[in-house]
């Protein structure tokens, strides 16, 4: 099994990225390329659905940090959902839960950025 696989789909104006496996120094380039590809295509609102992400090291956090300013300059954002406890612990320990909007699941995240979906 590959250390990391990444699926991408579009949900309205939101690009949903689903990394599965491990994001570390070995796999981070693949993750970074997927994020950069979305930004190149002008898809500035990105949801990272982390339900199948086993862990992310600082290399992966750096990839997200490297693009956050760019997407926000274009009135977009990087959102997080479905974090497993150990992945949440990494974000929370570093205070990143204050920097990124974190949602319990994908529906909540999409509802937050597309209010008409509510109800």
């Amino acid at each position: 099994m590959a250390d990391l696989s990444i699926a991408v789909r579009q949900a309205g104006d939101v690009a949903v990225l689903l990394p599965a496996g491990f994001i570390n120094a070995h796999t981070v380039r693949e993750f970074e390329e997927a994020l950069e590809g979305l930004v190149r295509d002008g898809r500035y609102t990105i949801l990272l659905n982390c339900k199948n992400l086993n862990y992310i090291s600082s290399a992966g956090l750096g990839a997200i940090m490297g693009l956050i300013e760019t997407v926000r300059e274009h009135r977009g954002d990087i959102l997080l959902s479905d974090l497993q406890p150990n992945v949440f612990a990494i974000f929370d320990t570093l205070g990143f839960t204050q920097l990124y909007r974190v949602f319990n699941d994908e529906d909540q995240a999409l509802a937050a950025v597309t209010p008409e979906r509510k109800g």
Partner: peptide
């Protein structure tokens, strides 16, 4: 400093912090 990091996001420097926290 995590608070400074959040104010001025950039790549790198987080590994040692994670090690020391965990």
């Amino acid at each position: 400093d995590p608070k400074e990091y959040i104010k001025h996001p950039r790549k790198g420097g987080l590994g040692l912090l994670l090690m020391s926290r965990f």
